[in-house]
Design a protein around this nucleic acid. Structure first.
Lengths: 148, 148
DNA sequence: CCTTGAGTTGAAGTGAGCTTTAAGTTGCAG
DNA sequence: CTGCAACTTAAAGCTCACTTCAACTCAAGG
């Protein structure tokens, strides 16, 4: 038991529930071999994939986009650290941008809340170009969402 | 027509859909008077409440918590700028914390993705104490969510 | 061999935050 | 006073990211 992991072991090691792991597999985020009895067996490298998924979620990236990113990893060989680093580079830019926007929100917060402006429309806090928008789930047309 | 606003006018000015405004009202986030014909009429100060709701959402605060915060505003008189500033102070702390955590995530990202660690459990990126967790919607036990 | 815990599936449920729909009422411009 | 856009409601629908359930099957220790 150190070549491959059962779903329970992967769950314990990753901190992600088995049901979530099965869900991720359905979405194509991770993959598993099967035993003769149809049970999942995970290569240890899947642990890294799961880690990447969780980190990406914390950056506020939806699973579908994470899947697209993971699809860019070489399928033939086991991804090298360099592959992973390349992948995380784009995320890092999003992270930087998010941090920048939150900083702006913070700087604007007191002045805008305390000011006389009653219009979100003109308010710099609601400027679409500066929006932190377009994050998560839910059924909306255009609007922002909470995030990590 | 500059004493009170119709729902359409508030929607236009706030950038929030009428359906969302009605939803906010059901949750107790905003209030409206009614005309003889049962249509909503909003005081201009409601614009500020809507602004506060949207800003708070960008900070990653769920509507229920936003409601609790808004409930702390004086009901009797129209809230002063000072009232709003006091209210936003707590949010500002959350914002600072969020920014700090995202910064840490960013600093750890390359090193952890590039490193040999395969365990989210021990990895500083997944340390519960450092978690960006507990954000948004969805049915989960413990886990983080995307955010602004 | 037998029991028991761990794993399997598909389908349905959950929760946040809305939107959409249906069926009707109001308000104001012409 | 008529016509039409804007409003009203309750209920149902939607997305995301999962969890829970029911009904099994598998794997391994005693």
């Amino acid at each position: 038991m150190h070549e491959s992991l059962t779903i329970g072991q992967l769950a314990d090691r990753s901190g992600v529930a088995p049901s979530a792991l099965r869900y991720y597999e359905r979405l194509g985020l991770i993959r598993a071999e099967r035993t003769g009895g149809n049970q999942r067996r995970y290569a240890r490298t899947e642990l890294r994939r799961v880690a990447f998924v969780r980190i990406s979620q914390q950056v506020g990236i939806p699973l579908e986009e994470i899947r697209e990113a993971l699809d860019s990893l070489p399928a033939a060989r086991t991804p090298t650290p360099d592959d992973w680093t390349a992948l995380s580079q784009a995320w890092r830019e999003r992270l930087d941008e998010k941090i920048r926007l939150l900083g702006k929100l913070r700087d604007d917060l007191d002045s805008c809340i305390g000011c006389g402006c009653l219009s979100l429309q003109r308010c710099k806090l609601n400027n679409p170009d500066d929006s932190l928008a377009g994050e998560g789930p839910g059924a909306r047309l255009v609007l922002p969402r909470p995030s990590a």
